[in-house]
């Protein structure tokens, strides 16, 4: 079962990057200490993975079937894509990388001549791609609705400066913890999803291993990203930043229930865009939007090619 190491690496990278999307604001504004935020993120991501992580795994199993060795290639191909594209500062999404790798594994046997038809369920793929597009849009709508509804409730409370501050600080912690839960529930499939099936991990075991890998990532390596992403979000006022985190959590959680792993970063951009619509201000520049569009295409394409190359090499050396 050594092959699972590629999935664990993927989980660690995911935890270290995506913890920033839920607790970045609180840490970079020095409202919460890094260790408190990282611990909350680790605990809630693990709980999310254990409680609701199974649905996404079933989707990946339905998209294309894998063996232990090909699951390793999926994890490795996706992880190399994410690491490489991040190093080159190109927009990337873990979920989209895993899907590209799964498609490669489903189509590679046709290319090397060991199968006549590709093992990719196009209806499942269609659902997954629709959810990618729906992520920023869903977060945008969620941000607009939440901004107005919660705002009206807060106005009615007529809070003084200290009460307002206290409520928002509490709200950011609650929203961050919920976002971490949603992150674990939604993204654990990216980590150990390809390793579920006959002769491999059971779904609960995969959720546990994946959840622990994400938790480890947030505890060990998320500080830098938290500061960078958080400072970007801090440019928003505290209420808007809270709404963005909450909208991201709601959206990512909704897709976790639907069983489709999506990008938390793209949900954050959708949320920030929603705030801009409510306030009549431009909160997201064209470059960020272009990056999302690019990520939808480039990430699965690069991951597909990397994994395909890995498969061909493994086949040529007689490992597969």
């Amino acid at each position: 079962m050594w092959q699972i190491i590629s999935g664990i690496y993927m989980g660690w990278a995911l935890g270290s990057n995506d913890a920033a999307n839920v607790f970045g604001t609180a840490v970079s504004s020095r409202m919460l200490r890094f260790w408190t935020a990282a611990s909350l993120c680790a605990v809630f991501a693990l709980i999310g993975a254990l409680v609701e992580g199974g649905a996404g795994m079933k989707t990946y199993s339905a998209l294309s079937s894998t063996s232990l060795d090909t699951a390793f290639l999926v994890g490795l191909g996706a992880a190399l894509t994410v690491t490489g594209m991040t190093s080159l500062r190109l927009p990337v999404s873990t979920s989209q990388a895993v899907v590209g790798a799964l498609i490669a594994i489903g189509t590679a046997p046709v290319l090397v001549g060991t199968a006549t038809t590709a093992n990719v369920q196009l209806d499942v793929l269609g659902k997954v791609v629709a959810c990618w597009v729906g992520t920023p849009i869903g977060a945008l709508v969620a941000a607009v609705v939440l901004y107005v509804v919660i705002g009206q409730l807060m106005n009615r409370l007529a809070l003084n400066v200290f009460q307002y501050d206290r409520l928002l600080r509490m709200a950011q912690i609650v929203a961050g913890s919920y976002g971490a839960y949603a992150l674990g529930a939604n993204n654990v499939a990216n980590v150990t999803g390809p390793f579920t099936g006959p002769g491999m991990l059971s779904v609960p075991a995969a959720c546990l291993v994946g959840g622990l890998a994400i938790a480890a990532g947030s505890l060990t390596f998320s500080r830098g990203v938290m500061m960078t992403v958080g400072r970007g979000l801090v440019k928003l006022d505290a209420y808007s930043a809270f709404i963005v985190i909450l909208a991201e959590g709601v959206t990512v959680h909704a897709y976790a229930v639907l069983g489709v792993p999506v990008s938390t970063s793209q949900a954050v951009v959708g949320g920030v865009l929603g705030i801009g619509i409510v306030k009549g201000a431009r909160t997201v520049n064209r470059r960020t939007l272009r990056n999302i569009l690019l990520a939808w295409i480039s990430t699965p394409t690069v991951s597909f090619l990397v994994t395909l190359a890995g498969y061909v090499v493994a086949h040529e050396v007689g490992w597969l």
Partner: peptide
């Protein structure tokens, strides 16, 4: 105020 209390905008305002 700079030792982990209040949100940045509350700090700035006060």
């Amino acid at each position: 105020m700079y030792s982990h209390s209040l949100l940045p905008e509350s700090r700035g305002d006060i």
